[in-house]
Design a protein around this nucleic acid. Sequence first.
DNA 1: GAGTTTGAAACT
DNA 2: CAGTTTCAAACTC
Length: 739
Amino acid sequence: MDNSQKKKIETPTPKSKFEDSPVFNYINNLSPIEAVRSIPTVQTFNSLSFTSPPPVFTSPHASFHRDHNSVERSKALESLDRSVSTQEVVVASGEVDLNKEATLEDQEEETSCDRVDSPGTGDIVTQVLLDPSGGAPQGEDDGSSSQDVSVGLRKILDAQKENGTPRLMADAAELLVFRSPNDSEAFGCLVDKISSSERRFCAGVKLTKHRDITKDVPANDNQPLAVVPNQLVSNLHRGSMRRRCLDFEVLGKRKKDIADDDQQTVGDNKAESSSKCVVPGIGLHLNAIAMASRGIKINTIHEDSTSVEIQKSFLGSTTPVQSQDIMRETLDQAESEPGKGLAVEEETLKPLVFEELNQDSLQKKKQVFLPKKSYINRFLRKVEEPGEGDSCKRCNCKKSKCLKLYCECFAAGVYCIEPCSCVDCFNRPIHEDTVLATRKQIESRNPLAFAPKVIRNSDSIMETSDDASKTPASARHKRGCNCKKSNCLKKYCECFQSGVGCSINCRCEGCKNAFGKKDAYLLAIMESKQEEDLSKIQQNSDLSKEVEQNHPSSDQPSTPLPPYRHMVVHQPFLSKNRLPPTQFFLGAGSSSFRKPDGDLAQARIEKKPLETVTEDKTEIMPEILSNTPITTVKAISPNSKRVSPPHIGSSESGAQPLQNAQSSFAFPAASSAPQQSVTSNQPAKHVKKASRGRPLKIRKIENIPSGSGTFWSPFTDRSFEVFGSRVYDRSATDSQPPQ
DNA sequence: GAGTTTGAAACT
DNA sequence: CAGTTTCAAACTC
């Protein structure tokens, strides 16, 4: 008996003990969940990036896109729910997380977003725990599923207490908060709306943050509990959505529910007044800062409270003024301990991370995680504006009935409240229908009317420009201002008012915006673009070298490199001592041919071409790239004869697929009179030689899909075939591509 | 607090 | 899309 039992136990000896463990079994069973990985979600999230505000801003009624993996995920979660015991889940996730913690311990916050990309078992578990619908077996209603989950969580909690795995405890506990019967309607509403992908994202992010939190504040494992719902809400609704939902929709829903729950009424009313009492005119994420910090504070206070209490407290028993105090405390704390400043911020303002992430549509990870102090300061400035007293500043509308964007409350997506001095105000919960209808109407006219006016740009350009333009973060006004007289130095200017620098979107005159002048912004764009182009040119140069090595042309001069190519590499404006960006732009861009020389300062003011470049960099900049060398060579070439663009349009070469395919890369000045006059005496062939190495054709190489294709070289009048990184001369018999 | 200035929103 | 009007906030006194 003993022997047989031993044998049974030792049968799988090829496997380690670890493999025999329930954990391993669990992991083995996890295969279908692979598809649940949050990577795509995060990428999508990031790819949404800057210019287009997320769809949630267009309308609160917008249906979110369904994740294509939701079905798979559902199945996975279902199987998990049925086949994996909660105990196993706990153990498994505990192990995974411990490993992760070990590897991730020293990572910067900036990289923590990456951790979302690599969810482990723990993430999945958390998804199951957090996902009220997705985690439920199909066919069960939400209530029962949540009950099941709660029961399972209790087990998890018990197990955690035994195992002493604090992080998982936190997860489980927060789930209890999340699914507690006293969840705020707001959150419930949000949960109903969120897409599965967003939920996944939230789960992933949340988990990530927990690692950090438990790592940073091991003594207070419960700290994030009250915060988490807000984080999730924030994530799900990316800023304004949350608030609007609270005010315009959830609030209405609450109204109906209030009668059913006296206890809830207290909290809801508070929430209502609180949500109303957001500071108009400031970024929505900053309002959320108040909420978030409130949550933290309250959580600290109610460390041992039940989830119900936490929820209620969270829902707004604190006024914005209190929030403000909390934030001020935070700042003071950070300032008083310089060496520890960041740590203080991290510790106290963790949830803000998520607001930041939402607000700006997931832009640079680097920017995402901690709200910059400047943001908080700006928020505080807003709140503490002299003369505003203790209450939030409200509108003063007389004629608009607070149903137009003139009304700050309405524009901010909140109802008017007591402190407002508006007349005939319709922006009240009792006129909910009117408000919603009006909002719809306005949104139909301008889908982004209620979107945050200030967005943060993920483009590195903005990063670069920030130093120069003194703009905190890379936030910019979405539409830009149109100031004529204020020089963007007064709050008439929306950019200035928002505390951001003017940008390319601004049509202001005489901009002196203290947060960043428009000119500085444009210059930064140019510089950044140049660097980008430089690297591209370097790459192209390498490629062209390879072409040449493979195909030393008979009619090529013995010179190692044609003069022009030297120029390409050593273009003055592409070197460290490059010309001012504006010069670069004007000189290199196609517009330079139409607009030869001129007052640079004047040209800088001209917005058209600049806007075009910025908004459609990928389209225009290649053209600039192509043209750039010519202009430069023209400037440097001793005789100015070998640098003119060739007559591409001439009948010399019947088959020029490249040009046909990419007319935008054609030299715009090819047919212009002055250019022709330079080259009119030159034989066509000479012209072609002279233009050898043009980035134009080299660029084409990189446009060949999948590393293979055919292109024609105007330099040698030959056709080449490219296979991967190899180039074969179709004209030469000894250089044929593999069949 | 009244009047003026300013620029966004709305309208044509 | 541009010009004009309306509006309310910001500003000045």
